[in-house]
Design a protein around this nucleic acid. Sequence first.
DNA 1: GCAAGAATAT
DNA 2: CATATTCTTG
Length: 377
Amino acid sequence: MIKSLSNMMKYNEKREKCCEYIEALEEERRKINVFQRELPLCLELVTRAIEAYKKEISGTTTDTLYGQPECSEQTTGECGPVLDLFLPVKQSSASTDEEEEEVYEDDDVEHESHDTGIDFVDKNMKSEWLKSVQLWNQPEAVPVSKSERSQQETQTVVEPIKENDNGAGSHQPPCYEMSNEKNDYIISLATTSSGSGRQKTEAERGGSGGRSSRRGQRKQRRCWSHELHRRFLNALKQLGGPHVATPKQIRELMKVDGLTNDEVKSHLQKYRLHTRRPSQTIPNNRDSQTQHFVVVGGIWVPQANHSKANAVASRKTTTGIYGPMVSPLPSEWPSHSNFGREISEERSRCSNKGIVRCSSPAMSSSTRTKTKNSKLS
DNA sequence: GCAAGAATAT
DNA sequence: CATATTCTTG
């Protein structure tokens, strides 16, 4: 008699336990699902375990509660925010990406194999929306994925050190608070793409609602994320250096919709400033004004360390962040801007006091010289 | 009137 | 400091 009773209790207890397990397992499975290709076995195991437990508690019971085993939407978990962000952009992936992404497809699809079609879930999704979002918002904030890409194309240099950036938990705070603005940006990025994308000026200041009424209002500050800056540099490179490239051209090349000429212009201005005479502010000894450059493979580099230019050592080359030469570049720019050693490249092009044909406006006080001729479009 | 650049402003 | 905006000029 007693026995049966205790048995029953035990059973109940057991069942309860099972339910808990199942619950936990399913939760786990959802997570694993995202990494299906990495952990196929894991997924399988968990699934089996779930089934096993279910069998155990057999028939009726509380199955209803756990009736959603097939939750294929791996977004679950704590992805709340993700989802939110994702939604607005969602469609972009389909239509826009080609425009936007082209510049940096490389790393996005690098890792492991892609067996099941599932990849798209985490891979695509992530890259897609993250990218767009990032462009305007938090420059870094990305979990990990893109840590690599930093400087692929141009880079001749190695850049040994770069771990610091986001490796650990450095969430750069979003530039400034853009609150809901972000959606607008995202959307514009997503839909417009390069094609025509151009009317932004208005849209932006309009803020959220889209009311562009208040014109006096200062535009939201644009944060030049790494991505943006990368594109910027890229464009610069294609155009032949910061001194010959014009804001408009750059903007067009960047293919970042929502970006305005003014913004580019401003950025360019800053870039040029930093680019030239990086040392100036720093009276520092060092051959400050005597820097001797050496031509290496067509580019000018500081004689000093051209051989191992990027070596870690040089990084503190006095010149500071904007060091004119190929200083190994301190991880990147100060906070978020990222003129890094890339500038070195640029400067290598025209800098060197007039040695090169280009009038090197940068050097001369009167920059306006420019080479407008070249762009007689 | 536009666009680039410099000079200011925030 | 980094961006935005305004001023100047071609």
